[in-house]
Design a protein around this nucleic acid. Structure first.
Length: 298
DNA sequence: TCGCAGGGACTCG
DNA sequence: CGAGTCCCTGCG
């Protein structure tokens, strides 16, 4: 029987921040304290009242909570230490950590992350979500119908996607990324890339392996490594985070990407991935550095 | 209205 | 290397 389970006394957990900080695309906001999340071939509802340490998960079991959701939600990681260390770095980090103190980095599926972040390139988040929904609704399996909004579907497996053509992918509005998705799928099916094996690789090996897929560069590889493989020392560097780092630590000067990466590695060390999420979420929600950029163009 | 940027990466020269 | 290009959408 599917039912509701409750988790009590969880610190550093804010479901809104966790889902809205840009690491995950398959969720729906019902209201501030109530979200639908599709993951692990299931659709669950997560409820958390403001400032509450109690979390209610609907449409699951206590068995699934232990086996699936605790690892997925990263509930066994001590975020009080992480937030403390990062907040003590400087005033910028302190603000960013305080702003997103309930963020946790989810442990998502490598295959789904790979395709999702290939789609993400040069797109805004709502558009990314739409493309992913299009693909799941056409080529995934129905999990549950939903009379209020979009139905819930599984993310199609490599075996399901290998049957899909370039043209069919373009109908999902992925545009020029269609051949990238085809290449990723083909390499998984052919076995030239083994997504499970990447769990056991070091960062450099893993990044190299992922980047042998067309359309996967350093940024997308790092996103997959951080959000699926839990390589916490990577620092995915997109235009936003680049702007934030330049503004905070380089007086707004334009810095080459390797310099930013080196700075993050030296300054944040093995917590770089967490730092990236706090900085990204804070920067985006506050609309930081948008004005500065416009001013520069004059 | 239209030009531009959006969690980039590839392809030329 | 640096610049231009890629599909599509929303925003000023």
């Amino acid at each position: 029987m599917k039912n509701a389970v409750v988790i009590e006394g969880v610190q550093n957990f804010n479901i809104s921040q966790i889902l809205e900080c840009g690491q995950v695309f398959r969720f729906e906001k019902i209201c501030d304290s109530n979200y639908t999340l599709i993951a692990k071939d299931k659709a669950i509802k997560i409820t958390q009242q403001p400032n509450s340490t109690s979390i209610i998960i609907k449409n699951t079991t206590s068995g699934e909570l232990e086996e699936i959701w605790k690892p997925y939600l990263d509930l066994d990681t001590d975020y009080s230490r992480i937030t403390q260390v990062l907040a003590s770095k400087d005033e910028h980090m302190k603000k960013a950590v305080e702003f997103g103190t309930g963020i946790r980095i989810l442990r998502q599926d490598p295959w789904e992350m790979l395709i999702s972040f290939i789609i993400s390139q040069n797109k805004a988040i709502p558009h990314i979500k739409q493309c992913i929904y299009n693909i799941t609704s056409k080529y995934g399996d129905l999990i549950e119908e939903n009379s209020y909004g979009q139905n819930y579907y599984t993310f199609p497996s490599p075996e399901q996607l290998i049957k899909v053509s370039d043209e069919q992918l373009r109908e999902c509005k992925v545009g020029f990324r269609a051949p990238y998705i085809l290449d990723a799928t083909a390499q998984i099916i052919e076995g030239t890339i083994d997504l499970t094996a990447i769990f056991h690789m070091n960062i450099e090996e893993a990044r190299k392996k992922l980047m042998q897929i067309k359309g996967v560069g350093p940024k997308i590889a790092d996103c997959v490594l951080l959000f699926a493989y839990n390589k916490m020392e990577v620092f995915p560097t997109d235009v936003w985070i680049k702007r934030v780092i330049e503004g905070y630590y380089f007086e707004g000067k334009d810095m080459p990407l390797p310099e930013i990466q080196k700075f993050a590695k030296d300054y944040f060390g093995e917590l770089a991935g967490y730092a990236q999420q706090y900085l990204f979420f804070h920067g985006r929600e506050e609309g930081l550095f948008k004005k500065e950029k416009k001013d520069l163009k004059k």
